[in-house]
């Protein structure tokens, strides 16, 4: 996130523009039901029928619900909860995530998914080379590192969440999941990634790169092969296309541009999803901004302005679905 206070950018004009744009963006949030920690939550009509307290709330005295975090009030039927915007990733079953192996333990890998705890990827939940359904042998257990080692980045899906302590279990039981190579990772705050139908996205030409938008805020930018329908060749195991490290310069340039677009959106606190990424890349091309200058205050101001203009054009202060 850009530092909120104080003049940070180098060019004064750019700084002023950026601040202006952000102010416009902020005013569009004026009508949202934000609460502060400690505020009593208006129960309204539900007070009669009884209310179920969800995350971010607690009972304070009789028939009084209080927010325990600062955030957005959400009401689904009788369930009232407050969703804090910042904070670590909270998993939901079916989420596509990108995780990093922190430990190779007995019959499981422990994964950092930017959550409140490490997630577990069980040996039983991965596709072994040479056939999907065979039983795991002792040899498999000893050879776990052949498959995934410490620090490896892996795309996976949330299989289940333990009711009691919230422990998350992942699986890679699909051709498209597995070890990530030949690209780079950009980390953003999880709340900037909305849950979409497709988290494996192939950005069309001229960008021509593949991105994986992990719901946990880990965004992988790599070649399009990752994302193609066929996915990986199962017999090859989890190897992604291309020998590691050797990436064609043109492809690398496109990947860097997309990566910086993600960084720019994250720096401004704007949601990171494919149309926005493409728009930022197009804008940088239009303004002839070099890739490395996409993170400078002038370009960020431009992006913020575009977004502010778009919202004013939409005419209302509701959060927009793109």
């Amino acid at each position: 996130m850009l530092q909120p206070e104080g003049p940070a950018p180098s060019l004064d004009e750019a700084a002023a523009k950026l601040a202006e744009a952000q102010a416009i963006l902020q005013s569009s949030t004026a009508s949202l039901p934000l609460v502060c920690l400690g505020d009593a939550i208006d129960l309204g009509a539900d007070a009669e029928g009884g209310v179920m307290k969800g995350h971010g709330t607690m009972m304070a005295g009789e028939a009084q619900l209080q927010a325990t975090v600062c955030g957005l009030v959400e009401r689904v039927n009788k369930l009232v909860s407050v969703r804090a915007l910042k904070g670590r990733y909270t998993a939901q079953v079916g989420d596509v995530v990108v995780g990093r192996v922190t430990e190779v333990a007995q019959k499981r890998w422990k994964m950092d998914v930017n959550g409140k705890q490490d997630a577990a990827l069980l040996l039983a939940s991965v596709n072994l080379p040479g056939g999907v359904q065979r039983r795991r042998t002792n040899v498999d257990e000893l050879n776990m590192r052949e498959l995934y080692q410490e620090n490896d980045l892996i795309s996976a899906e949330v299989q289940q969440i333990n009711q009691g302590d919230g422990a998350v279990a992942l699986h890679t039981r699909s051709a498209k999941y597995g070890k990530l190579q030949g690209g780079q990772l950009v980390t953003v705050a999880p709340y900037l990634i909305k849950r979409l139908k497709q988290h494996f996205v192939a950005l069309a030409a001229p960008l021509d790169v593949g991105i994986i938008l992990g719901c946990n805020g880990y965004v992988w930018i790599g070649s399009k092969d990752l994302v193609d329908a066929g996915g990986r060749d199962e017999d090859e195991g989890m190897e992604a296309a291309g020998p590691s490290g050797q990436v064609d310069l043109q492809l690398r340039e496109r990947m860097c541009r997309v990566a910086n677009a993600v960084r720019a959106l994250a720096a401004l606190g704007l949601p990171v999803h494919p149309p926005a990424i493409v728009e930022v890349c197009n804008l940088s091309g239009l303004l002839r901004v070099e890739i490395k200058d996409m993170l400078g205050p002038e370009f960020l101001a431009q992006v913020a302005y575009r977004e502010a203009d778009r919202r004013q054009a939409e005419g209302d202060a509701q959060p927009m679905d793109h």
Binding site: Q26, T29, C36, G269
Partner: peptide
């Protein structure tokens, strides 16, 4: 603190669910 919090909250984008 509340004023400061409100300002900070509004700086965070609030995507629709």
């Amino acid at each position: 603190a509340r004023l400061s919090l409100d300002k900070a909250q509004r700086r965070l984008e609030l995507p629709g669910t």
